[in-house]
Amino acid sequence: MPAPREYTSELSHWPTCARCVACYVAGQHWTKGIVCFYCVRAARNRQGICAACGHSGILSGLDPEGRPVCVRCCDVPIEVQRKRCGKENLANHNNAGRRYLLSDRIDKLLADPGGATPESLEPLAQTIIGMPRPNSG
């Protein structure tokens, strides 16, 4: 489920979303029209089994009945392959992969002046990087 919406729907201020038919901050322009920020985020973060083909992974689109479907079974222009490893998984706005971003941040935060993580902090770094949900890190 997408996170709660931060803005109230204001018909006169934002364009109507082609996906949820509400008026919120515009996120992207898809083939069906302008899609709000919240629907774009939901499309990037929904995981499960595709209702059309049975694929297990990111479910960016919706079929005519409103069931979640994978990128291959819809016309949603979202890249779900991570840049670094090519695996399909949840990613951030630049499609780097959340675990990679967390790893980069931990390396930067725990690094000594020479740029290396001290051996004594390595267990802490690995524990944080290995969290089940890297976006919580």
Rank of each mutant, 00 (worst) to 15 (best):
Ile78Arg: 05
Arg19Leu: 07
Pro64Phe: 15
Pro68Arg: 08
Arg44Phe: 12
Arg67Phe: 14
His29Phe: 05
Tyr24Gly: 02
Asn89Trp: 12
Tyr24Asn: 03
Arg41Lys: 05
Leu90Asp: 01
Arg19Gly: 01
Ala22Arg: 06
His29Leu: 11
Cys17Asn: 03
Gly48Arg: 15
Ile34Ala: 06
Cys20Gln: 06
Asn95Arg: 13
Ala18His: 14
Ala52Pro: 04
Ala43Ser: 13
Cys85His: 02
Asn92Asp: 11
Lys32Tyr: 15
Arg19Trp: 08
His55Met: 11
Asn45Gly: 03
Asn92Ile: 02
Leu90Ser: 00
Ala42Asn: 02
Arg98Lys: 12
Ile78Lys: 03
Gln47Ala: 02
Asn95Gln: 14
Ala91Trp: 08
Arg72Thr: 08
Ala43Gln: 12
Thr16Pro: 02
Gly97His: 07
His29Gln: 12
Gly86Asp: 04
Gly97Cys: 04
Pro64Ile: 11
Val25Tyr: 03
Ala43Asn: 10
Ile34Gly: 05
Thr16Ile: 13
Trp14Arg: 05
Cys70Asp: 09
Arg84Gln: 08
Leu102Val: 15
Ile78Phe: 00
Trp30Ala: 00
Val76Gly: 02
Cys50Pro: 07
Ala22Leu: 07
Asn45Cys: 04
Arg82Gln: 08
Ala52Glu: 12
Cys20Ala: 01
Asn45Val: 00
Asp75Gly: 07
Thr31Tyr: 15
Cys85Phe: 02
Leu90Trp: 04
Gly54Met: 09
